[in-house]
């Protein structure tokens, strides 16, 4: 059963899964981090309250987040084709992954930054810090441990989504699990792919925890 060919297939699956997950996570943060910051800054108690923008942003984020991933995946196929040229394979899957996870990341960033003591922001304001300086020198550095911890959660969630994309030929371990394990009743293959996913999730989570703990100066 686990001949060289299958091993090669699994190796490729691992690689594709890591590729999709990490690139998607990176891009999701590229979009989600500024969005999360914008949510915080424009909040009515934020450093630059902008009610309309805040409400609108919040609505869009909730809207995208309430669409089931599988539906979103199919709905954005034309957009994916336009961007990547195809709608199957791991690179194509990155498009819906980023679209689905960026709003989730934005909320994660928002909640991390909300943990920063309001008083510290006030202290910075009393020293004449500009909103930019508050974002760069107070909010982000002070929220860093929590941001990293949440990044580990976001990454593992994206990994889960990427496996779901296996149903529509998304590539990676998800596709192998569905094509071999589900359609061909090779439950041993399904089991192995699931185990591999479990290991990857554990590794991501552990790495995130360690970096966050090590960098947190509150826990000396």
């Amino acid at each position: 059963m686990f001949n060289a060919q299958m091993m090669q297939l699994l190796a490729k699956g691992i690689w594709e899964t890591l590729y999709m997950t990490l690139v998607s996570s990176f891009l999701a943060y590229l979009l989600g981090l500024p969005l999360g910051l914008l949510l915080i800054v424009t909040d009515k108690n934020g450093i630059r309250p902008m009610r309309v923008l805040n409400r609108l942003l919040s609505f869009v984020i909730n809207f995208v987040r309430s669409v089931p991933f599988l539906i979103l995946l199919i709905a954005v196929i034309p957009f994916t084709r336009f961007l990547v040229g195809t709608s199957v394979g791991s690179t194509a899957t990155i498009v819906p992954l980023v679209l689905a996870s960026a709003p989730f990341v934005a909320r994660m960033v928002e909640s991390s930054i909300k943990e920063v003591d309001r008083g510290v922001v006030e202290a910075a304001q009393s020293m004449g810090a500009s909103p930019w300086q508050i974002v760069w020198k107070v909010l982000l550095p002070e929220a860093k441990p929590s941001l990293i911890l949440n990044a580990a959660i976001a990454t593992t969630t994206i990994l889960g989504y990427s496996a779901m994309a296996g149903f529509v030929g998304g590539g990676g371990l998800g596709t192998i699990s569905i094509n071999y394990g589900f359609y061909r009743y090779q439950s041993d293959v399904m089991l192995v792919t699931v185990l591999l996913l479990v290991v990857i999730v554990q590794v991501f989570q552990e790495i995130g925890m360690r970096i966050a703990m090590k960098g947190d100066k509150r826990s000396h």
Binding site: G128, K217, R218
Partner: peptide, 23 residues
């Protein structure tokens, strides 16, 4: 101008409000 002026009006607080991630 206000931000500039605030550099001459410092403030301390009941809760100290230090940056926890800085020494």
């Amino acid at each position: 101008q206000l931000r500039k002026a605030r550099q001459s009006i410092s403030m301390i607080f009941q809760g100290f409000h230090l940056l926890m991630q800085r020494n």
